[in-house]
């Protein structure tokens, strides 16, 4: 399930923390840039070192598939950039140009903290980047059945696709909206559509305006789609967007893009299940 690379919050976090993102207008007829003719539109991205006075020459790498203009590194032969591929290449780029890899200030600040609250926050920040191994190492060293800790542990284990352990970690926390949505994510990601449907329906019936409800609507729509009920999928996505405007909710943005992408074909955005929350 995806709507492009930004459907993956880990990709978004990595971009926002470690890169300077800009959307190039390639349809203004200004000329060929990066070997891309004006007006050309396809799924690719460019990573580029910054221009630094008396520094090394600017280097740029084009990634992705584009019609007639394959970049140096070809993504899968698809018109939608694979989030996992993008994450991998961003990390590789940062590794290659380590002088440009500046640790996120809040992570650096919390690195040496010893109090549980700071350690938990550090683990959550690492999970935002998809660094489940490091997060788990921190969480495993933390005592207690605190709800937030259990949720973070479940999230880390889910990122590692250790479904049973993730569900077990969650079961140690008191039930509430945030544990319920995590339960739904686990069920959804492991492909247990029946359980995911049951949990999401219950969640939406009780908490349609909860901060996590936009995600619940989004996931519920995909369950309908998986079941072949496109119309109900559309209905649920639209309802989610209506309740949680795209200006306020990442998942409504994702639903919004999914709706747009149906103009291609919904199948092209549903082939894989790569979202990591």
């Amino acid at each position: 399930m995806r709507t492009g690379p930004f459907s993956d919050p880990v990709v978004v976090t990595l971009i926002n923390r470690y890169f300077v993102p800009v959307h190039l207008n390639n349809i203004d007829g200004s000329g060929i840039r990066y070997n891309m003719p004006p007006g050309h539109e396809d799924a690719y991205f460019i990573l580029e070192t910054p221009e630094i006075a008396d520094g090394p020459e600017v280097e740029s790498i084009t990634y992705g598939w584009s019609d007639g203009h394959d970049g140096p590194v070809a993504a899968e032969n698809t018109h939608v950039l694979e989030p996992r591929f993008m994450k991998q290449e961003m990390l590789k780029f940062l590794g290659r140009y380590s002088q440009l890899d500046h640790e996120w200030p809040e992570l650096a600040h919390l690195k040496d903290a010893t109090d549980p609250v700071s350690r938990l926050r550090l683990a959550e920040l690492l999970l935002d980047e998809g660094a489940a191994d490091q997060a788990l190492a921190l969480l495993d060293a933390m005592p207690g059945p605190l709800t937030r800790t259990a949720e973070a542990r479940a999230r880390a284990l889910r990122q590692q696709k250790r479904w049973d352990e993730a569900a077990a970690a969650l079961s140690s926390a008191p039930t509430g909206p945030t544990t319920t949505i995590e339960e739904a994510r686990i069920a959804f990601d492991r492909g247990d559509s029946n359980l995911a449907q049951e949990v999401l329906d219950a969640f939406l019936a009780r908490h349609p305006d909860h901060v996590d409800a936009a995600e619940a609507y989004y996931l519920r729509g995909w369950l309908y789609f998986r079941a072949g009920d496109d119309n109900s999928a559309l209905e649920v996505w639209r309802e989610g967007i209506a309740r949680h405007p795209v200006t306020e909710s990442l998942f409504s943005q994702k639903a919004h893009l999914t709706l747009i992408r149906q103009n291609w074909s919904i199948d092209t955005v549903a082939r894989s299940n790569t979202d990591i929350h």
Partner: peptide
């Protein structure tokens, strides 16, 4: 910091 550019 490195740039990331999206022409799409």
């Amino acid at each position: 910091k490195p740039l990331i550019l999206f022409p799409t």
